[in-house]
Design a protein around this nucleic acid. Structure first.
Lengths: 216, 216
DNA sequence: GAGCATACCTACTCGTGCGTAAGGTTACGC
DNA sequence: GCGTAACCTTACGCACGAGTAGGTATGCTC
């Protein structure tokens, strides 16, 4: 005990807002390394250089803490994407910029990010939060496709559009996972690859080309 | 206590193999409903109509049990796909049949399946098992693309191929999630939609068409 | 430089659920 | 009909970690 004294004679007393950010940083790190369940509040507090009751005082229970992490990171990502893909641009340019921003973000937050998302898929309370975020993304992509379709005088059922958007988002998330697992990989290049898959497919679809089973 | 006596006077003594399957069925059900952590061994044993120590005797610890579930379900799925997509068929036909088999499988095992996969993403021990399985799938898809490419005299870097395959698999898994969440949706139709996205995109790529950023 | 609010700590309680020890019960061979 | 081995049970130990009670230091205000 009291080991702290020797190394840090006068430990700082910091305002709440600062501590909260430190805690969130630590939480993201630990949650992503250990997973939600295996992460202990003690370790998070320790990593933040603070004691456990402080965490409870500021950010509440473990679940609330996790939701707070999810929320902060999610918001940051959404902002990064939204800032890049302005609605006035043509569809391909919007898609490209959105993908660039997305993969750039994941590449920069490798440690915390993708793993945080991998966690959230699992248990009920967070699934809702995550589903909402993904829902917004799907909506954006679907809207983009719809816009492009109408521009070329075509139209398609809402469900079809949603499903295609869903597939695109899924593919993108999947590549984000891949990127997070391959530290040597380049975010920009990954974005280009995704663009190739997504756009060349989407482009064909937008032209009204559809595939159908040979027999049935 | 002893409530069992009245309803089932002579309760069967069953051979190990049968009990193991019952336990796995129960485990899949409970894990998928509750998630790995929230699931309790007691509930699983209860649901299997057996007592806890039996589960430990036959399938080992909780983690081992989960891996066993993952393994059984994964193997079944792989067999369903492999049986459908024979290597001699042309690429589009293989892809189509593979997707049909996959979505058919997920549609039939909605409850157990997708959710089991959603769980496995999370914590370390299972991530390995799942990654291995997905790895085999990616390999199959990549091999298929490579085959088709060589047939048309073209060639592409191994990493590119892997990444594209990865994206395709990711999109497919994502639609599987969607399917699992929408009970009213039709597996066949979902497969067709996926085929549209995947094939029209892949077809373009196979023709050597590539997209690249407008500026840079 | 007293008082008060707020940052911060150590050290505990207590529920939950994994895994097991030790003992009944049923089928089957002889 | 009796032993023996496999099947199956009830009831417990025990660790781990979420959340808390109650006390201490610090800095800001007047």
């Amino acid at each position: 005990m009291l080991a702290r004294v020797s190394s840090t004679p006068t430990f700082k007393r910091l305002p709440r807002a600062v501590r909260e950010q430190q805690m969130l940083d630590a939480a993201v790190k630990v949650f992503s390394r250990r997973g939600f369940h295996a992460a202990s509040m003690d370790e998070i507090a320790d990593d933040a250089g603070i004691s456990k009751p402080m965490v409870y005082a500021y950010l509440g229970t473990k679940e609330e803490l996790f939701v707070a992490c999810l929320h902060r990171e999610g918001t940051r990502m959404m902002e990064a994407i939204a800032g890049a893909a302005a609605p006035e641009l043509p569809a391909d340019e919007r898609l490209w910029r959105g993908l660039r921003a997305f993969f750039g973000f994941v590449g920069a937050h490798r440690d915390g990010w993708a793993v945080l998302y991998r966690q959230a898929r699992g248990s009920q309370p967070f699934a809702a939060e995550l589903a909402a975020m993904r829902g917004r993304l799907v909506e954006v992509v679907a809207g983009m496709l719809d816009h492009a379709l109408r521009a070329s005088g075509r139209e398609v059922g809402a469900t079809d559009l949603e499903v295609v958007a869903y597939a695109l988002v899924g593919a993108t998330e999947s590549l984000a996972d891949w990127l997070a697992d391959h530290p040597e990989a380049d975010a920009e290049k990954t974005a280009t690859r995704m663009m190739n898959v997504a756009w060349l497919g989407a482009d064909q679809l937008l032209r009204g080309v559809t595939w159908h089973p040979g027999e049935v």
